[in-house]
């Protein structure tokens, strides 16, 4: 037999993938949620099974050791008691899993906030009536620093002085996944109606975005929108 069997290699691969995602990655960036780690482990398992069952020989290399382990064929001495220990451990693990699944959770139910829920129909087809001139953008910047920057930050990155306690955090306009994906009419809706204007899927109950229609005119809002795109170095989504 050349080198370790496929079953062993597969086990090592899974362990390495897991360790890399769970322990190494957080050294460089934010830790991954477990859901994603399970997903990647699942894909790695598919890979091992697919590759391992391509031919009769590889199937033997993948499943042979597993079957031999299960049947206890040709296993003696220390390995024998290790086998019995594993066989005894598996049902216990299943039992533990069941127990921990049933025990009252100390984790609140997962929240699934849709970051960009669909806007109401009457806001979909609007376009910015204010011409995009340097003066208007400049005015918009003034409004932005007065009304928006405390939370969304002077650098349009959602990092304003008042942002720390809010959950969800204020939007980061310099992230290409926010305003760059949206049309100006969408921003008009969000600014005008604020957090309380969100639909069910927006999980509205936490957004601290004010309903600016009570304080700002439409004109000012359109100018703020232009200033946000200009300041964050983004362009609104268009269909032309």
């Amino acid at each position: 037999m050349r080198g370790p069997s496929l079953a062993v290699k597969g086990g090592i691969l899974l362990a390495v993938v897991f360790a890399a995602l769970k322990f190494v990655l957080p050294l460089f960036t934010a830790p991954l949620p477990m859901s994603l780690i399970w997903l990647y482990l699942f894909l790695a398992t598919i890979g091992i099974v697919v590759y391992g069952t391509l031919s009769a020989e590889s199937t033997e290399a993948l499943l042979g050791p597993v079957f031999r382990f299960l049947s206890g064929e040709g296993i003696g001495g220390m390995a024998k008691s290790a086998r019995l220990a594993v066989l005894a451990l598996v049902p216990l693990l299943v039992g533990w899993q069941t127990y921990s699944g049933l025990v009252p959770s100390s984790q609140p139910p997962a929240e699934n906030r849709t970051i960009h829920p669909a806007p109401p129909g009457e806001f979909v087809g609007l376009s910015n009536p204010v011409p995009n001139t340097p003066e208007n953008v400049m005015q918009g910047r003034g409004f932005y620093s007065a009304f928006c920057s405390p939370c969304h930050g002077a650098k349009f990155n959602g990092n304003g002085a008042a942002s720390d306690g809010f959950n969800p955090p204020p939007a980061n306009f310099s992230d290409p996944g926010t305003i760059a994906m949206l049309q100006e009419s969408y921003l008009f809706w969000r600014i005008k109606k604020g957090g309380v204007g969100l639909s069910v899927e927006g999980h509205p109950w936490k957004s601290a975005m004010p309903r600016w229609e009570v304080e700002l005119s439409d004109d000012m809002i359109w100018k703020i929108i232009m200033a946000e795109y200009a300041g964050a170095g983004q362009k609104p989504r268009t269909w032309e």
Binding site: T29, A30, P31, L32, P33, M34, S35, L36, Q107, P108, A110, E111, N112, R113, I115, N167, P168, P169, D175, G177
Partner: peptide, 16 residues
């Protein structure tokens, strides 16, 4: 991402 609230808090939102 599907993340528990604690995971999300560590990531700084649901976007990794």
């Amino acid at each position: 991402l599907v993340a528990s609230l604690e995971e999300a808090r560590k990531m700084g939102g649901t976007h990794h």
